[in-house]
Design a protein around this nucleic acid. Structure first.
Lengths: 182, 182
DNA sequence: CTAGCCATGTAACACGTTACATGATTAT
DNA sequence: ATAATCATGTAACGTGTTACATGGCTAG
């Protein structure tokens, strides 16, 4: 009963978006998927090796001038098929949030409302920053690559981030004001 | 640069909510914290052992009639202090969602809108179920233990779940209708 | 001259899940 | 009979992060 290795498919997908090396994959994830997916080099490089071993991509050693050499990966027909198979496969789980603020709030009768409020305010600030980041990524996509066939879908994923973050912001404000009335 | 072991504090906190054995902790988490925290026996029992070793709790072997013996854990003064220290410590990270639907949607130009829509619909159904569960937990808390000093805070955490889930539901409906117009 | 970017990779570690082992009682 | 609930625990496994190693080029 082994779950899928999602990171493998994330990498497979990213190889179709114009980036072809481990380094570029990391860049794109940090810039554009950061709100629902993360990945580290410790995952990327071993997975790329695996993907080649399974025949889902081929490597091309590309020397560069003034920069270190890079390895460029390109999906094979099998790789394309594997990506599409995974895309249409049914969802396994819905996302689960491990939320430190809520965990603390759950036990907050052991603490003054003042400190609890402070922490929620801290959380609120972080959510606001996050919202700003989402908006700037969205702007970038719309200006920079609105012609790309991917753009439409990327904007959908950002919309999700914006909506749920806004819901979190609303909650913070409501909860802070509730704690004050006492 | 080692992050905190949150599960340890989750257990520490739960020992103050009327449950005192590993089994009871698991029950309560599955019933009431499930929307922002999960834990398995493989984490609970080793952590309880650790907590006792650190002097944060004491164990009491309690034989039961008609049931297996259980071990009851009670926080020491040090344990109470450790919990409070952690509660007031600043937030480390804000939660990060690893979202399979969004990952697939990100690459959905490789697939027909029909299948993409189906998957979002699937996601929508799961979010609706989740919302129903939140509402029933909330009702349980309000009816069953509204007198408890914890109840107020527990309801806040549920409110968060309800709001963000509702935002997800709205997003699904909007996105499905957007994909149809083509 | 120092920081940061470009670029690839591994080893150790932390965290968490799953499956397994044990075994009594109670409800269907 | 059989499944479910009560109850504790460990070992193997999977997944992901962090720190480290290497090293050249470019901008301040």
């Amino acid at each position: 009963m082994k779950a899928e290795n999602y990171s493998k498919y994330a990498i497979l997908g990213l190889l179709t978006t114009g980036c072809h090396s481990g380094y570029e994959i990391k860049q794109l994830i940090d810039n554009s998927l950061n709100h629902f997916w993360k990945i580290s080099y410790g995952q990327i490089y071993p997975n790329l090796k695996l993907i080649v071993q399974e025949g889902l991509a081929t490597v091309l050693d590309t020397p560069q001038e003034g920069k270190p050499d890079k390895k460029e990966y390109y999906l094979t027909a099998d790789g394309e098929a594997a990506l599409q198979d995974w895309l249409r496969s049914p969802l396994q789980e819905i996302p689960f949030e491990k939320n430190e603020v809520l965990l603390k709030l759950f036990f907050s009768r052991h603490q003054s409302n003042e400190i609890t409020t402070q922490q929620i305010r801290q959380y609120l600030e972080k959510l606001k920053e996050r919202l700003t980041i989402y908006r700037s990524i969205e702007k970038m996509i719309l200006e920079h690559s609105s012609t790309s066939a991917d753009a439409k879908y990327w904007v959908f994923t950002l919309d999700y981030g914006k909506r749920t973050t806004q819901a979190g912001i609303d909650w913070c404000e409501y909860t802070i004001s509730s704690l004050k009335e006492e």
